[in-house]
C-alpha cells in the first residue's frame, strides 16, 4: 500500500493528465450516443445570445445577397399564386397540415464531420425536437435540441443523417446519406439496380420518415455509375441547398404528426 501511494505521488502529474483525458473521452462518447441532450448545453442562453449578437453584426455584410434571395423567392411565390388562380376551379382545397415558422440562422458550420446550425427560435415559438428545417432552396436538417429561445439543428451534413428520398420522375425510394466531406454533395444510396436513373434527375423527400414533408427539394443527380452484380447502387447528388450561405430557414410544423405517430405505433404494437 505504501509503495502504491509513493508510486501515485511520484507520477501525480501523469495521473492528473490521465484523469483529465478520461473525462474528455467520457464526454466524447456521451456526445456520440445522446447527441441531443449534450448539445442542449450549447443551446443555452449565454452562447445563444452571444452568437446572436455576433450574427447581428455580420448580417450587414450579407444584406445584398439576402435581399436578392428574398426577391427571387418572392417572384417564385408570385408565379405560384398565378398558377393557383388559373387552376382554381380544378384544384383540391390546399391542405393546411403544414405551417411554417421563419427562423434566422445564428451559427452554422459546413466543414466538420458533424455539422449543426443554431436558430433564433425555441420552445417559446413552437419549435419541437425532430421538427424538419427547410430553406427556400431545399432541405436543411432537423431539430435535435431546443431551449427557451434557441434550437440546435442537425444539418443534413452530418454523418448520422439519413433521409428517406425519392426520385421525382419514377417515385422510387432511396436514402440520402452524407459522408464525403464536401458540403455541396451527398450520396443517394440503396437505389434498386433496375431503376433508370440519369444524371440531372431531381431527388425530393419521400415523406415516409414522417419527419420531412413530401416533395421537399433535396438535389440533382450529378454522377451515377451502375455496378454489375450488385442489386443496390448509389449515386452522387448535388444538394440544391447552399448550406454555406443559409440565412433564413423555415421550421415545418405538422399539425397532424401526433395523429400519424399514434397510428403508426398502434400498427407496430399489433
Amino acid at each position: 500500500m505504501r509503495y502504491l501511494f509513493a508510486f501515485l505521488r511520484k507520477n501525480n502529474i501523469f495521473f492528473l493528465f490521465l484523469f483529465l483525458e478520461i473525462i474528455a473521452i467520457v464526454l466524447m462518447t456521451k456526445n456520440r450516443t445522446f447527441t441531443g441532450s449534450v448539445i442542449l448545453n450549447s443551446t443555452s442562453q449565454f452562447s445563444g445570445s452571444l452568437n446572436k449578437s455576433y450574427s447581428g453584426i455580420i448580417d450587414y455584410f450579407d444584406l445584398k445577397k439576402t435581399n436578392d434571395l428574398l426577391v427571387q423567392e418572392n417572384a417564385y411565390l408570385k408565379n405560384s399564386i398565378i398558377q393557383i388562380n388559373n387552376n382554381y376551379n380544378t384544384i383540391i382545397p390546399p391542405d393546411t397540415i403544414y405551417q411554417y415558422i421563419v427562423a434566422k440562422v445564428i451559427s452554422n458550420s459546413v466543414h466538420k464531420a458533424d455539422n449543426y446550425l443554431m436558430l433564433d427560435k425555441g420552445k417559446r415559438h413552437g419549435i419541437k425536437i425532430d421538427m424538419p428545417i427547410i430553406s427556400d432552396q431545399g432541405i436543411v436538417g432537423s431539430v435535435v435540441a431546443v431551449s427557451e429561445n434557441f434550437c440546435s439543428v442537425m444539418s443534413v451534413l452530418h454523418k448520422d443523417s439519413k433521409i428517406s428520398a425519392k426520385i421525382k420522375k419514377s417515385n422510387q425510394l432511396a436514402n440520402i446519406l452524407w459522408d464525403n466531406m464536401d458540403y455541396q454533395r451527398g450520396t443517394l444510396a440503396d437505389i434498386p439496380s433496375h431503376i433508370d436513373l440519369r444524371v440531372g434527375d431531381t431527388i425530393i423527400s419521400s415523406g415516409h420518415s414522417l419527419i420531412y414533408p413530401e416533395g421537399i427539394m433535396i438535389g440533382i443527380v450529378e454522377n451515377y455509375n451502375t455496378r454489375t452484380g450488385s442489386s443496390l447502387n448509389s449515386a452522387v447528388i448535388k444538394f440544391s441547398t447552399d448550406f454555406n450561405s443559409l440565412k433564413y430557414v423555415y421550421a415545418v410544423q405538422n399539425s397532424r404528426l401526433e395523429e400519424m405517430l399514434l397510428l403508426k405505433e398502434e400498427v407496430e404494437n399489433d
Partner: peptide, 28 residues
C-alpha cells in the same frame, strides 16, 4: 498547465458544438 488546458478546451468545445475533442487535444 493541465487544468488550464482543460478549461480552455472546455470553453472552445462549449462554443463550437463539440464535446470533449478540444479538451482532449488541448490537455495533451
Amino acid at each position: 498547465l493541465l487544468f488550464l488546458g482543460f478549461i480552455l478546451g472546455y470553453v472552445i468545445d462549449y462554443f463550437s458544438h463539440s464535446i470533449g475533442i478540444n479538451i482532449f487535444s488541448t490537455v495533451l
